[in-house]
Amino acid sequence: MLNIGGLHEGVVIDHIKAGGAMQIYHYLNLEKIDSSVAIIKNAKSNKMGKKDIIKIEGPITVDLDLLAVLDDDITLNYIENDVIVKKRHPNLPETVTNIIKCKNPRCVTSSSSERGLAHTFKLTDRKHRIYRCIYCEQKFKGQL
C-alpha cells in the first residue's frame, strides 16, 4: 500500500467515494490554500471496497461542513500532536453561498447586469440533501 506520512496537525477527509477526491479538492478551493495537501485515490477500504482520502496539513480555514452537500457519509478526522482528537461527519449547512452555481438560464443570477450577486442555495429537504436556489428555486442535489 502507498505510504503517505502522518499529519502532526490537520484534517484527514476520509471515506470519500472512490473518484470523488478531485471534485472535493476543487469544491473546497483547496488549490488556493498554502497548506500541504495529499490526495490518495482508490485506497483499500473494508467498508467501501475503494475510497479516496484527502489530507490537509496545518490549521484549517475552509468550512468543511460544506462537504455534507456532496456526501454526508464522509468522515472528518481532526489531528493535533499526531493524535486524532475529533472524528465527525460534516453537518448539512442551512445555506451555501457562492459554492454551488445556479444553472437555470432564467434565474436572475444569470443576468449580465447583476454583477456580484451571490449564488445562494438553501437546504429544503435534509433527508434527501436537496438545496434550492433562493431566487428561482432551481433544485441542486449534490453527489460525488
Binding site: N104, R106, C107, V108, T109, S110, S111, E114, L117, C133, I134, Y135, C136, E137
Partner: peptide
C-alpha cells in the same frame, strides 16, 4: 423576465416590493 429579480430588489430596497411576475416563476 428573470426568476428571482423581485427578491433581489427586496434585499436592497428601502420600500416594500411587490412581485408582479418574475418570468415563469
Amino acid at each position: 423576465p428573470k426568476e428571482g429579480a423581485p427578491l433581489v430588489a427586496s434585499m436592497y430596497s428601502g420600500i416594500p416590493v411587490i412581485n408582479a411576475g418574475d418570468g415563469g416563476h
